[in-house]
């Protein structure tokens, strides 16, 4: 394989992984934008989405649904079920802590993250869960680069979800309420926005996106494990910070940039330090440009 071909191949792989990071990063960024909480448990929500997706797909395939229909139904069911996890988490672990400083909800989020991880470990075991359909082998050549159908699906689904999300936030009534709440919760409630409902909705949408990302990754790698949420969550958070936390286009951009950087680094430096690359990117961005690449500098609220 020539140098250029390898570069292009890594680029395509990076784009695929990057779109997944972007989908997860959106959940971080939306929640942070509204309640200024780093939702540590978001990575676990993604992992739960991957598990639910795998299990629901398996159940549908066993009941005799054709693969395509089963996948579509699984996506919808997974998004809804995982979204419910997100909403319950907000209700139980975060809502009553909204006015209690920074440390308290962060520790609650850590607890939630451990809880979810152990919940899946205890109910599903430590072994990899195998995705019921073999999807990663099919593909085609795009010029010199091989593109698997699953990769194409990831790119298309991620791009369309981001488009829908942008339209939702910009055009709908609920989207406007979200932007309003993000600016000033008290003012929003004074003009009749139901802040609790908006925040619950934010968690729901973020969790749905993470769940879709989880199912896509389960299809891509063919397996899931209860430990995947932690690293994926950290990387998605890096992506969100990279783009400017609280900034929706920033999260998309940051995810893709991080995915590509990481793939290229893995290709040229070596796979075992792949995770380190992501953390170094995070530290460097935070030190030199803490507002992110697309974010405006937000003054601390006093």
């Amino acid at each position: 394989m020539s140098g250029l071909t390898e570069f292009l191949q890594q680029l395509v792989n990076g784009l695929t992984v990057g779109s997944v990071y972007a989908l997860i990063a959106l959940g971080y960024t939306m929640v942070y934008g509204i309640i200024e909480l780093i939702n540590f448990a978001h990575g676990e929500i993604y992992m739960i989405g991957a598990y639910i997706g795998t299990i629901v797909t398996a159940a549908l395939l066993v009941s005799g649904f054709p693969l395509g229909l089963a996948l579509v139904l699984a996506f919808v069911a997974t998004a809804l079920l995982t979204g419910m996890h997100g909403v319950s988490m907000e209700r139980i672990a975060y809502r009553s802590l909204r006015r209690s400083g920074r440390l308290t909800p962060l520790i609650s989020a850590l607890g939630m993250s451990i809880f979810f991880q152990q919940y899946v470990l205890l109910s599903q075991g430590a072994k990899d869960k195998i995705f019921p359909a073999e999807l990663s082998s099919g593909g085609f050549m795009l010029g010199p680069v091989r593109l698997a159908y699953v990769q194409l699906a990831i790119l298309v689904v991620a791009a369309s979800l981001m488009l829908v999300l942008t339209l939702f936030v910009q055009k709908t009534r609920m989207g406007r309420a979200m932007r309003c709440t993000a600016q000033d919760q008290v003012m929003a409630s004074l003009v009749g926005v139901s802040v609790n409902r908006v925040i619950a909705m934010t968690f729901f949408i973020g969790s749905c996106l993470a769940a879709v990302a989880g199912l896509l990754v389960a299809m891509y790698y063919g397996k899931v494990n209860y430990l995947v949420g932690y690293v994926a969550g950290l990387k998605a958070f890096t992506a969100a910070v990279l783009g400017g936390i609280g900034n929706i286009p920033g999260a998309m951009f940051g995810g893709i940039l991080l995915g590509v950087t990481e793939s290229l680094a893995a290709g040229y430096i070596g796979g075992e330090y792949k995770d380190v690359v992501a953390f170094i990117v995070l530290v460097v961005v935070l030190i030199f440009k803490p507002e992110g690449l697309l974010g405006a500098r937000v003054p601390d609220k006093v």
């Binding site: 440390l103 962060l106 953390f279 995070l282 935070l286 030190i287 803490p290």
Partner: peptide, 28 residues
Amino acid sequence: LPVLRLRGDYLAIVTLGFGEITRITLNN
């Protein structure tokens, strides 16, 4: 030196990343 100018929750994440880098390095 570089990270203490950051706001609280960023500091948390950077130290988390540092912890991971240390562990991964010790491992490899």
